[in-house]
């Protein structure tokens, strides 16, 4: 793949609308299975005159025919409205869910920060959660141990290291979570708007860290609503709409076009 860190070809994700419900009951599934032979007889007769397309099951293409290439070390903002497929794209690249069609290749270690503090357990102490969260993010124990002091210093929570996280204030919780995340330097970083945390000073620190990460050559894909954030951090932006790429280019112009379409 050479210089390309992320490549996607015709990537698509289709959801069966029913699948997005919290869960199905066994009774529903059995009932549906039992109805299949009958539906073949009845549905066609009833629906044929109305639309031509069967009304159900309904599919939703959260992402369709998305192709893009991201060079190593590049920082790309993914902008778009709610439901435009931004998060789905990130989830596909992070392998959290599988594409329905197309393919993608990602080179090197992938870090997905779709939220901070993934896997934090309230009963465990700050110290224990640093290890647990670090391993979940993809660090190994030696790496965490090596960066442990740095992580703790960054969080400014030295005094509360052996307190269960459930006794933390929400600000402390986020600070610890972000500190672990900030010390994880993958080859490809997938970020989902996890910036706005903590007070002003802590935010400054986080921004400083992100800048360092970018300088270290990490490829970043950043999902955001915020045009200012996109322009500040990324030289390039991809604008998704209805699950498809509407525009792809220098962030200044793409973001401008996106903002213009919102008004």
């Amino acid at each position: 793949m050479g210089d390309i860190a992320v490549r996607a070809e015709g990537l698509g994700k289709r959801y069966l609308l029913g699948e997005r419900l919290p869960y199905r009951t066994l009774r529903d599934s059995l009932a549906r299975a039992a109805r299949v032979p009958f539906r073949a007889l009845t549905v066609r007769r009833r629906e044929a005159p109305s639309q031509g397309l069967p009304a159900s099951p309904r599919y939703l293409w959260a992402l369709r025919e998305v192709s893009l290439e991201v060079k190593r070390g590049e920082a790309v903002a993914i902008v778009g409205r709610n439901g435009s497929g931004k998060s789905t794209l990130l989830k596909l690249l992070a392998r959290i869910t599988e594409p329905t069609q197309g393919w993608a290749e990602v080179q090197g270690r992938v870090g997905a920060l779709l939220e901070v503090g993934t896997g934090f357990h309230p009963e465990l102490t700050g110290r224990e959660n640093i290890f647990l969260n670090g391993v979940i993010l993809g660090l190994n124990r030696a790496e965490i141990r090596r960066r442990f002091d740095e992580i703790v210093a960054f969080s400014e929570l030295e005094k509360f290291l052996d307190t269960p996280v459930k006794h933390y204030s929400s600000g402390m919780y986020v600070r610890l979570a972000f500190s672990v995340a900030a010390h994880f330097v993958p080859d490809v970083l997938l970020l989902d708007e996890v910036f706005a945390v903590g007070d002003h000073a802590f935010r400054q620190k986080c921004h400083h860290r992100l800048r360092e990460t970018l300088q270290a050559g990490t490829t970043v894909l950043l999902v955001t609503h915020d045009p200012a954030v996109a322009e500040q951090w990324c030289s390039r932006a991809v604008w998704l709409e209805g699950g498809q790429v509407r525009a792809d280019g220098p962030s200044a112009s793409v973001v401008q076009a996106y903002v213009a379409s919102q008004e």
Binding site: T100, G108, D187, T218
Partner: peptide, 16 residues
């Protein structure tokens, strides 16, 4: 970071 690159130059392929 560099060492990681050398250790895991793996390319992950994502497809159905």
């Amino acid at each position: 970071v560099l060492r990681l690159n050398r250790r895991e130059t793996l390319v992950v392929r994502i497809q159905p």
